[in-house]
Amino acid sequence: MYDELREFGFAVLAVAFDKDPEDVRPWIELAEPSYPCVIDSRHVVADLYNMVNVPTILWIDEQGRIVRPNDVAFGDNTWQHITHLDAAPHARALRAWVRGEASAFSAEKVRSLQKLPTPADQLARAEFILGQWLYERGQFAAAARHFDRAGELAPHDFTIRRGTMAMRGLDPTGPDFFAMTKAWRAAGNAYYHPLSEE
């Protein structure tokens, strides 16, 4: 879709929340994207934009303004049997916006849809910084304590809870992950929060 929309002045910037570029290299090399994919091992972008899971997308207009706040959109339906999210509605909306056939959200609408961080969310991110710093210095047990604390402070933040699993000796794509999401859903919570369901 990127290649199809380029002529309309469209760009994509992909950001990977991965502690090690090598973890994400196979994915990027397989996709061979013609747009840049940057590695955000310290979750700087998650903090700046209050992102709490992946995938998270935003639309930013020619003036650098947010015209669609954090939303969940997959590039295709590869994982639809697990996520129960259809990639098509977002793709249609994006295409219409880029081609100038439809406008994005008004500033008022964007603000009403934005979720802003709480003090607990930001303390969780400070705990994440501390944990990541310790992990980078080989202090794995100490790092895990702070990652655990961060997850307790912001249980809805899966960039922390799932994103630190590998650094805590857990499997982020296996039984540990499924147990975490099962407990989360059993408590009445959703794992994904697309704007269409707000």
């Binding site: 910037l13 990977a16 929340f17 840049p36 994919c37 992946v54 995938p55 930013i60 590039g75 994006l94």
Partner: peptide, 24 residues
């Protein structure tokens, strides 16, 4: 991946899809 820096501001003047993902 090649170590080349990219800034979001370099996309000014275009419509941008910012997309966060991960290997996990």
């Amino acid at each position: 991946l090649a170590g080349e820096p990219h800034s979001m501001s370099q996309f000014r003047g275009r419509k941008l899809l910012l997309a966060a993902f991960s290997s996990w």
